[in-house]
């Protein structure tokens, strides 16, 4: 069953249209990978799904109903959570308070329980709960950002470039949690510029370029034929270059 989808959406900033006529579908319990070069519109797609960027046209469908007109906070309350590019924690608040705000509407006991779940997922956070977010390392910040998103017990998690600027060993750490989340019933849309890691876990892969969806295929397809991906990528890159 389709959990979240965009139907022919366009969105952008000012005069710039960042994504055009884009349709993607996230099946329940699956991981949708979204890849593409810089400026392809990956982040805008996530922001449009979340409601941070308004739609110029098209619709966003959540469990069969149109949520395109809902503001971001209302969508969050429906069960959509997001880990933004650059983590974007609340820098003046402690790690614990950052997590707390992720479960703003939950009861105190419920929050405690969820926090324990997050700490089980990222044991490293337990020792730094009292630390101010602004002094954390990039890896720690990313864990808090994912943790904060999970505090709302979302059914859908949008993750924007989690590997950006992090050491590979830490990225591994983050990626290790994704199958666990899928196992716990969280559907995921994962945006990355770097294809490799996404490819390894994506059920469905979407390739964006210049604000449009240029390719869509099952993750297995690419895993079996790695060169297919290169074709998709290179084909479009050369198209951009204007040559034939």
């Amino acid at each position: 069953m389709t959990l979240l989808s965009s139907l022919n959406i366009s969105a952008g900033y000012g005069d710039l249209l960042a994504i055009e006529d884009m349709s993607v579908d996230l099946e329940e319990g699956s991981l949708l990978g979204v890849v593409g070069p810089n400026g392809a519109g990956k982040s805008t797609l996530l922001r449009a799904l979340m409601g941070i960027v308004a739609l110029r046209s098209g619709r966003v469908i959540w469990r069969g109903s149109d949520i395109g007109g809902l503001p971001a906070d209302a969508r969050a309350r429906l069960g959509i959570a997001m880990v933004q590019e650059g983590r974007r924690l609340f820098p003046s608040l402690s790690v614990e308070d950052n997590l707390l705000l992720g479960a703003y509407h939950a009861s105190r006991a419920e929050r405690r329980e969820r926090q324990e779940e997050v700490l089980a997922l990222f044991p490293a956070l337990r020792d730094i709960l009292g630390r101010t977010a602004s002094v954390l390392s990039g890896g720690e910040q990313q864990m808090v950002a994912v943790g904060r998103a999970l505090m709302s017990r979302p059914s859908c998690l949008l993750i924007d470039e989690p590997s950006l600027g992090l050491a590979p060993i830490i990225v591994d750490e983050i990626y290790k949690t994704l199958p666990k989340l899928l196992g716990a019933g969280v559907s995921i849309i994962l945006v990355e510029q770097e294809v490799g890691r996404v490819l390894s876990i994506a059920d469905l892969l979407v390739v964006l370029h210049e604000g449009r969806k240029v390719y869509e295929g099952a993750g297995t397809e690419f895993r079996e034929r790695p060169d297919a991906l290169a074709e998709v990528y290179l084909g479009n890159v050369s198209a951009v270059g204007g040559g034939n």
Partner: peptide, 8 residues
């Protein structure tokens, strides 16, 4: 039309 989030 400017988008809501970006405008803010």
């Amino acid at each position: 039309m400017e988008t809501r989030g970006k405008l803010r």
